[in-house]
Write a protein that binds this DNA or RNA. Structure first.
Lengths: 190, 190
DNA sequence: CATCTAATTAGATTATAATCTAATTAGATG
DNA sequence: CATCTAATTAGATTATAATCTAATTAGATG
């Protein structure tokens, strides 16, 4: 979905009167004067808001005699509401989605029998799998000193400086005033 | 969730710059000047928008030295985005959710051996089950003349006028310039 | 086709919001 | 503690939006 469509949806829906109209129409169609009455506004004001809601396609109408009934298009509403959740992100992530079997193979190849890291993978995908593995022993939500991180990494590899840096670059951890902490976003569900 | 919270969420998110910030932060945290650079705006403008986004709780921050990194709270974003879908409606609907066994019993009680309706249930819940049953033979999406509807109802009961009116009142059908049509919302999933 | 009903449009008013430049503040560091 | 960096706030400007009253339009009906 294109950006402007999403912006417009939220701009339109970001108004108390219009959300009230949506809530009213969830219980069934109503005509303009009924809405005006329930909300304590004049018919022209309702016309104005209905036009905006129709522009983003969440309202349609049926006429019966002189009265026009406005209906909510719940399907559309739902679709548009969820668009913001899906926007951006995913840039290249998909191509990095990886199943457990593949992870297992990479870990087996790069660790020796004692669990020591033989080398740091050059290929990004493999590197991420290894970093995820190395980070597993750390506790979520607590902060670590740089020294503690170094000690942790040394269990696997001597070059703790490089790996510590990779933790930050690849966003497995973040640093805050010299303290280290696991990224709580668990976004590396590669 | 209370109305104002939802209004405010959409009002805040209904701005091109702010949606762009959200999209940027999906790929990981950034600091203010980086965002300003990418969007071609000045740092004060970014501050202004970040404040708004923080107010609705979709952004949090971590400082490292002089630089403050802004992070997206995707969980919150998702939660808030979906609130509009759940607002209102459901008024009493839940209490009318009914399983097939119950439907079967009601239909058995109110129809005779030939499938004729013995009487129109007074209890709303039972009435809805019966109306749903009566409406089953009609085709979705096509329009019927009043006469056709009457004929259809007469298969079950003589008092077609009352039942036709109930179809409209209970929103199984709607009327448009004297034509009748099934409500496409299939909202009577009682 | 005159008249009624309900909706819409026009035009004005007032409130709200986005952006900038310039000034200030918060925190880190030699 | 002086200085640097990055963020924030103040104040002004300009654009946008919500609402009303009065006028107009669309469609139905005797």
């Amino acid at each position: 979905m294109q950006l402007d469509r999403i912006v417009n949806f939220h701009k339109t829906i970001g108004d108390k009167t219009r959300i009230q109209i949506i809530a009213l129409l969830k219980d069934g169609a109503l005509h303009g004067q009924a809405i005006a009455g329930k909300l304590g506004l004049t018919p022209p004001t309702i016309s104005y808001h209905i036009t905006k809601l129709r522009e983003i396609d969440v309202i349609y109408q049926r006429r019966d005699k002189n009265t026009i009934y406005f209906h909510l298009n719940e399907k559309k509403l739902e679709l548009l509401a969820q668009a913001i959740i899906k926007i951006g992100g995913e840039k290249e992530l998909d191509s990095f989605k990886v199943d457990d079997e593949e992870k297992f193979k990479v870990i087996k190849n790069f660790l020796d029998a004692n669990g020591n890291l033989k080398s740091i993978p050059a290929q990004r995908k493999k590197k991420l799998i290894i970093l995820e593995h190395l980070v597993k022993g750390l506790e979520k939500g607590r902060t670590y000193s740089e020294k503690e991180i170094n000690e942790h990494i040394k269990q696997f590899h001597d070059d703790y400086a490089t790996i510590r840096r990779e933790f930050i670059i690849c966003q497995f951890m973040f640093r805050q005033n010299g303290e280290y902490e696991l990224n709580p976003k668990e976004m590396w569900l590669i």
